[in-house]
């Protein structure tokens, strides 16, 4: 652009091509392998020539494995998590950005702190809490034994959320990045807008519903899509929180295809499964790339 840069541009171009190859080659191998039959695969090992067995492989995945069911689970959990996270983020960021008063900074700090420690680090005790969500009530009730003194016996409520959609989804919502992004976005909205609303006699809830939400439709959709994808690709929490095949999510289901005993694993089948598991979020990301990027980079300004 500025000086004669053709040599630098050539290096940059080579870097981009190398990057594209690095990202795309594994995906290409997945697709190629998924088109081969197990027998072909055993004979030729690794091959660059696509076979013609994709439909057979796909039919097998569809009928012989739990993946279709698990894909549906992923869609359900992804939907719950995306909606939930965006809804929680909207209300919290609205309270943090648009209201005067004490405690807003504290609330925001509580939310942002949750970004630093991922759920994976506290998996054991998160599991414990999910196994009995009433645990804090019991603890409070039995503190100093006042419940026992009043009712003759300690409080022992049980509310197990393991292996339910709620138990898989809600812990995945306990992370503040969505709120942080939305707070940044709300801060870019000109304050005159809300002032005008006050002058017009519009109350805070009405302003949120009638003005702020319609105005934020674009960023909210982008966030929702991003959060859907983030939930879809979760592995560790769905692995421990869902024990029955009926609640297992697709990514976990995919890794179960790996456990195949002694013989050489049926890689074509695995790769077909990988396509099924990866394609929905991949399509979303390829389509909404611009919006998602714009939504994410807002938070770094």
């Amino acid at each position: 652009m500025i000086e004669n840069t053709s040599s630098i541009d050539r290096v940059a171009g080579a870097i981009l091509i190398a990057g594209l190859l690095f990202v795309l080659t594994p995906l290409a191998f997945v697709v190629i392998t998924a088109t081969q039959s197990y027998e072909d695969f055993l004979r030729n090992n690794f091959s660059l020539i696509p076979g013609s067995h994709f439909l057979e492989n796909f039919r097998e995945v569809w009928s012989r494995t739990d993946l279709p069911r698990q894909t549906l689970n992923s869609i359900i959990v992804g939907g719950i998590v995306a909606t939930g996270r965006v809804a929680l983020a909207v209300t919290t960021s609205y309270a943090v950005v648009f209201f005067t008063g004490r405690g807003r900074g504290f609330v925001y700090a509580l939310v942002v702190a949750s970004i630093m420690l991922p759920l994976e680090l506290m998996i054991i005790t998160a599991y414990q809490v999910t196994a009995n969500v009433a645990l804090p009530l019991n603890v409070v009730a039995n503190l100093g034994g006042w419940w026992g003194a009043l009712f003759g016996g300690p409080l022992d409520l049980q509310w197990n959320l393991l292996d339910t959609y709620a138990g898989i989804s809600i812990p995945l919502m306990a992370q503040g990045s969505c709120t942080m992004i939305l707070v940044q976005f709300f801060r870019t909205i000109p304050p005159q807008l809300a002032r005008a609303a006050i002058v017009d006699g519009v109350g805070p809830l009405r302003f949120l519903w009638d003005i702020l939400l319609p105005l934020s439709k674009g960023p909210l959709t982008a966030l929702g899509i991003y959060m859907f994808i983030s939930a879809w690709i979760q592995y560790m929490w769905p692995l421990v929180a869902a024990s029955s095949p009926a609640r297992t999510m697709a990514v976990v289901g995919l890794t179960r295809l790996q456990e195949d005993g002694e013989r050489i694993p049926d890689f074509p089948l695995q790769m077909t499964g990988a396509i099924l598991v990866t394609l929905p979020p991949l399509i979303l990301i390829a389509l909404f790339q611009r919006r998602i990027v714009r939504g994410l980079t807002l938070s770094e300004k």
Partner: peptide, 8 residues
């Protein structure tokens, strides 16, 4: 957050 972040 309390239930699934701070409590754990």
């Amino acid at each position: 957050l309390f239930l699934f972040f701070y409590l754990p």
